[in-house]
Design a protein around this nucleic acid. Structure first.
Lengths: 188, 188
DNA sequence: AGATGCATGTAAATCGTTACATGATTCA
DNA sequence: TGAATCATGTAACGATTTACATGCATCT
C-alpha cells in the first residue's frame, strides 16, 4: 500500500507537520508504521515534488522551525483515485504461527512458555489500545458518518487482536489436553 | 521475520530444491510469500554460505538440474534458537481499513461498491484455501502432535480471513442502516 | 547532569515484489 | 504453434526499519 496514502489521508483531514504525522502513524494501531523519520519525511518531500501538497514554513520562538504540509487539489485527486482502486488482500503471515508450524522438536513446556510470552504481548497491546480508544485518539469526525467509519476502523484493529487471542486460547487448551492425562494418577 | 526461517522450517522437515520451496511458499496461505525467485534462491545461497544447509546436485534426464538442499546441524540449531526467541507482534495494518478511514468524500454507493469488491476477493481467497485444506496440503505429520500443530496453523489463517469477513458484514449493515431510513416513505 | 520532547533530516541495510532471461519438455 | 511445467538465476525497484546526526528547551 505504501505510506504515501496514509499521509495523504491525514492531510486530507487537516494540515500537519512531518513530526505530527510521524507521531500519528507510530501511535496508531490501525495505521501503525514504525516511528521512522526516513519514510515520513522522505515521502512528504516526494509528495511535494509531485504537487500533491504545499509547504508552509512556521518560525517558532524557542522551538525548531515547523514545515506544515497542506494537501492540494492534485493531492485530493490522487487520494480519491486510490480510494476507488481495488484494495489489496491482507496477508495472514504471522510470525508466531510460523514458529508453531516448526515446533516439532520443541518440548511442550517450552512451547507453552513461548505461547505465554506471545499471549502476554498481544494482551498488553490490546489493553493499551483499548485504553487509548477510551480516552479518544486524535481522529477526524467532520460528520457522523466519518465518526462511524473511524469507529469501524478501530473495531477492525481490535477485532484483529481479539481474534489472535481467541486462537491462542484454543491453542493452549489443545496443548494442555494432550499434556494433562498422564498426570492424573499422581497425588502429592 | 524474514523468509529465512520459513525456508529453514521446511528444510527441517525434509530436503527440498529451491523450486519446491518457491511453490510451497507461494501456495501457502499461512506462510505466503509471493512467487518470487529472487528471495528464495538468494536466501538459499545465503543459508549455504552460513553452513545452515548442504547442497546436492541432481542431474536429471530430460529435465533441468535440481539443487537439493538439506539442513545441517548448524541450521537446526539456528532454527531452534529462533523458535525460543520472542515472537513478533503482527501488525493490524490493512489496506481496506485505511481506505475506509479516508472515505469521507466517497459517497455511500461508491463505498458499497468497493466494499463489494473487497468482500468478494476475501471470500474467494477463503473458499480457495478451505478447498485446499480439504484436499490436504503438503504438510509434515511426523507424529500426531505435529499434525495437530499444523492444523492450528491452518485454523489461524482461516480464522484471520473469517474475522475479516465478519467485520465486513457488520460494516455493510452499518452503512445500509444509515442509508435505508430516508427511503422508507417512498413507494414508486 | 541527564533524560525527554520538539523538529528536522540522512545513511545504510534489509525485506519483498515484479519482471527479465534461458532452455528443454510436455500437453493441447 | 503456443502455453504450461520444470528449474535455475539476475536486475531493478520499492517498501520498511534501525540507527545516526543536530540543536535548543524543559523537566527531574
Amino acid at each position: 500500500m505504501s505510506i504515501r496514502y496514509a499521509l495523504l489521508g491525514f492531510l486530507s483531514w487537516k494540515p500537519f507537520a512531518g513530526y505530527d504525522l510521524k507521531k500519528l502513524l507510530s501511535n496508531s494501531l490501525s495505521f501503525h508504521w514504525s516511528g521512522n523519520n526516513n519514510q515520513v519525511y522522505g515521502t512528504l518531500i516526494q509528495l511535494h515534488k509531485d504537487g500533491a501538497v504545499s509547504i508552509e514554513v512556521l518560525q517558532q520562538e524557542k522551538l525548531p522551525t515547523r514545515k506544515v504540509y497542506t494537501i492540494t487539489e492534485r493531492g485530493l485527486e490522487e487520494l480519491n483515485a486510490w480510494l476507488r482502486s481495488p484494495a489489496e488482500l491482507p496477508l495472514a503471515r504471522n510470525d508466531f504461527a510460523t514458529r508453531l508450524a516448526w515446533a516439532f522438536s520443541l518440548p511442550d513446556p517450552q512451547l507453552l512458555a513461548i505461547l505465554d510470552g506471545y499471549e502476554a504481548s498481544v494482551e498488553a497491546h490490546l489493553t493499551l489500545y483499548r485504553e487509548r480508544c477510551r480516552r479518544g485518539e486524535p481522529a477526524p469526525a467532520r460528520d457522523l458518518r466519518e465518526a462511524a467509519l473511524w469507529e469501524s476502523v478501530q473495531e477492525h484493529a481490535i477485532g484483529f487482536y481479539e481474534s489472535e487471542m481467541r486462537w491462542l486460547r484454543e491453542l493452549r487448551l489443545k496443548i494442555m489436553r494432550w499434556d494433562a492425562p498422564p498426570l492424573s494418577p499422581k497425588s502429592e
